[in-house]
């Protein structure tokens, strides 16, 4: 099976006046197949949003290759997007910022159809259908964004994305700005759409527990690199990379047990000056001397996973890391 969206060795740089270019994403690989949800997680500043924008062509790449449906993704310029690229769409985090407050919802959703050559009446009618599809009343088309709650606005933004009849969606923190109960229902909607329309989806989130729930595969990023990727169940039950382990241990559980989450000491280093060797080694609880020297590549492990850690690739320890120790108090 060939991948629907495939990024290989992607690097993205931000150029700043009077400073060296900042490489926010470096040698990142990811693939998404039809009908598959790839969760992309990591701390803020790890480059997950940058990578998400690059794979849809919103940011130019400094190196590497991105292919969608067999064709190279070229960065969005001032001119109209290449027709083959309409199937690759993005959902943004903030539905308060991504919708135009002064245009009717139906017009905004219908834009995709207008660009596809439909007449306005036809575009409006089909926009109404899409709004119903995402769980909104059909008369939503004749209202303005401010009349809707955050969760409803995100549904509108999703409907607008669907108007382009995408086969792949990159959703950047699509539920983070929403209330708890709206989060669950919007996440469910996205899962349903992926299954029903046989789309691929990259679901970017800092909320690890949601990704664990809905993603088929999970990719973990740290400081511009993908450090681990694999089937969600394996990644979570037996993380291969110490950073994945640290992230999982930091998630507090609502089980009433009063267990404090495990702290990962230190801050994410400045991406303009990444540490030499393995980028995680200064914070890694199991780092060895060679970790400050060798930069480990992402290597396939035997269970369908890949990880970038010498502990795994040395062959000596292709096994899950130890369970986190329960810690009573600081």
């Amino acid at each position: 099976m060939s991948a629907l969206l495939e990024a290989t060795g992607v690097a993205v740089e931000y150029h700043r006046r009077g400073a060296p270019a900042l490489r926010a994403v470096d040698r990142a690989d990811l693939t998404v197949a039809r009908g598959e949800i790839l969760g992309l997680v990591g701390e803020s500043g790890c480059g997950k949003s940058t990578l998400g924008r690059a794979v849809v062509g919103l940011l130019p790449t400094a190196a590497g290759e991105i292919r969608f449906d067999g064709r190279p993704v070229v960065p969005l310029g001032l001119r109209r997007r290449a027709p083959g690229m309409r199937g690759l769409q993005m959902v943004f985090q903030d539905p308060y910022a991504s919708l135009n407050p002064r245009r009717l919802v139906g017009d905004q959703v219908g834009d995709g159809y207008l660009l596809g050559g439909a007449a306005r009446a036809e575009a409006l009618r089909r926009a109404g259908e899409l709004l119903e599809r995402v769980g909104l009343p059909a008369d939503a088309a004749r209202r303005y964004p401010h009349e809707f709650s955050g969760g409803q606005r995100q549904r509108i933004a999703i409907a607008r994305t669907l108007a382009a009849e995408p086969s792949c969606i990159v959703a950047d923190e699509p539920i983070s700005a929403l209330d708890a109960s709206a989060q669950a229902s919007v996440a469910n909607l996205l899962v349903e759409l992926v299954r029903e329309l046989d789309m691929g989806m990259v679901f970017i989130s800092h909320d690890l527990s949601v990704v664990r729930q809905i993603a088929d595969r999970t990719a973990v990023m740290y400081l511009g690199r993908v450090v681990e990727v694999g089937p969600t169940r394996q990644v979570w039950s037996a993380p291969a990379h110490p950073y994945t382990q640290a992230l999982i241990s930091a998630v507090p559980r609502a089980d009433g047990a009063g267990v404090l989450p495990v702290e990962l000491p230190g801050d994410v280093p400045d991406p303009a000056r990444p540490p030499g060797g393995c980028r995680f080694h200064p914070r890694c609880p199991v780092a060895r001397p060679e970790c400050s020297r060798d930069d480990p590549p992402l290597v396939a492990l035997r269970d369908g996973r890949s990880a970038a850690c010498v502990l795994q690739t040395a062959g000596e320890a292709a096994r899950p890391l130890a369970e986190p120790r329960p810690v009573a108090a600081e």
Partner: peptide, 19 residues
């Protein structure tokens, strides 16, 4: 409505309606 700590179930259970 919270994701289950052990993962597994494919969907989340939202509370219907909004506050």
């Amino acid at each position: 409505a919270l994701p289950h700590p052990e993962g597994g179930a494919a969907t989340l259970q939202p509370i219907p309606g909004s506050p």
